[in-house]
Amino acid sequence: MPDVDTLPAARAVERLRLAEARLARRRQTACGPSETARAAMRYILERADAGDPATPTDIAAHLGLATASVTGILHRLRGGGLISFVRNPDDGRSKRVVPVDRATDVEDVDPLTARIRQFAGGLTEREAEHVARFLDAVSDAVDRECT
């Protein structure tokens, strides 16, 4: 049986999961790109900033999806004018995914992530480590569910 003092953390995670489910439903209908497309775009921007543009295979591996699923996401992002494809100079058979406008800030693509990072900035290093370990354990449990 969990310690009574730890139940608020479990309740907070449940509230978070419900809020994320509501957000996912809203984003499917009225709020722009899906969460997966936003995650792909964040990854594309981060890789571009690192000077190592991503390939569709890289993006699929990062998202834990099949490359075929990512292809549809990338075509929608390209149709929205957010990305383009360029020939991979290291492998002529593949392409790299690059942002069209590198002035685009990751935080503009997903303002929620910017707000979460702002909240995290208010934590001490020790608090951040504790929260990260807890959330990593929750993420692992979610990933193991129904497998």
Rank of each mutant, 00 (worst) to 15 (best):
M1C: 05
D3M: 00
D5Q: 14
D5V: 15
L7W: 13
P8D: 05
E14Y: 15
E14T: 02
R15T: 12
L16M: 09
L16A: 09
L18T: 07
L18E: 08
L18Q: 06
A19W: 06
R22M: 08
R22D: 09
R22C: 14
L23F: 13
A24C: 10
R26M: 10
R26A: 11
R27G: 06
T29E: 04
T29S: 06
T29F: 09
A30N: 09
A30I: 08
E35I: 04
E35C: 07
E35M: 11
A37G: 04
A37Y: 03
A37S: 10
A40K: 02
M41F: 11
R42G: 02
R42S: 02
Y43N: 09
I44K: 02
I44W: 04
L45K: 02
A48Y: 13
A50T: 01
A54Y: 01
P56N: 02
A60W: 02
A60I: 01
H62A: 08
H62D: 04
G64V: 00
A66G: 09
T67I: 09
S69W: 04
S69Y: 05
T71M: 07
T71L: 06
G72Y: 07
L77R: 01
R78M: 05
R78A: 13
G79C: 13
G79T: 05
G81Y: 09
L82Q: 06
S84C: 12
S84L: 13
S84T: 14
F85P: 04
D90L: 03
D91H: 05
G92Q: 06
R93G: 00
S94L: 11
K95T: 09
V97T: 14
V98P: 01
D101Q: 08
R102I: 14
A103C: 14
E107V: 08
D108K: 15
D108S: 15
D110F: 02
D110I: 04
L112T: 03
A114R: 14
R115K: 14
R115Q: 15
I116F: 12
F119E: 12
G122C: 04
G122I: 08
L123A: 10
E125F: 15
E125G: 14
R126H: 11
E129A: 12
H130K: 04
V131L: 12
R133K: 13
F134Y: 15
F134L: 15
L135N: 11
L135F: 13
L135A: 10
D136V: 01
A137H: 11
S139T: 15
V142M: 11
R144S: 02
R144Y: 14
E145R: 09
T147H: 10
T147N: 13
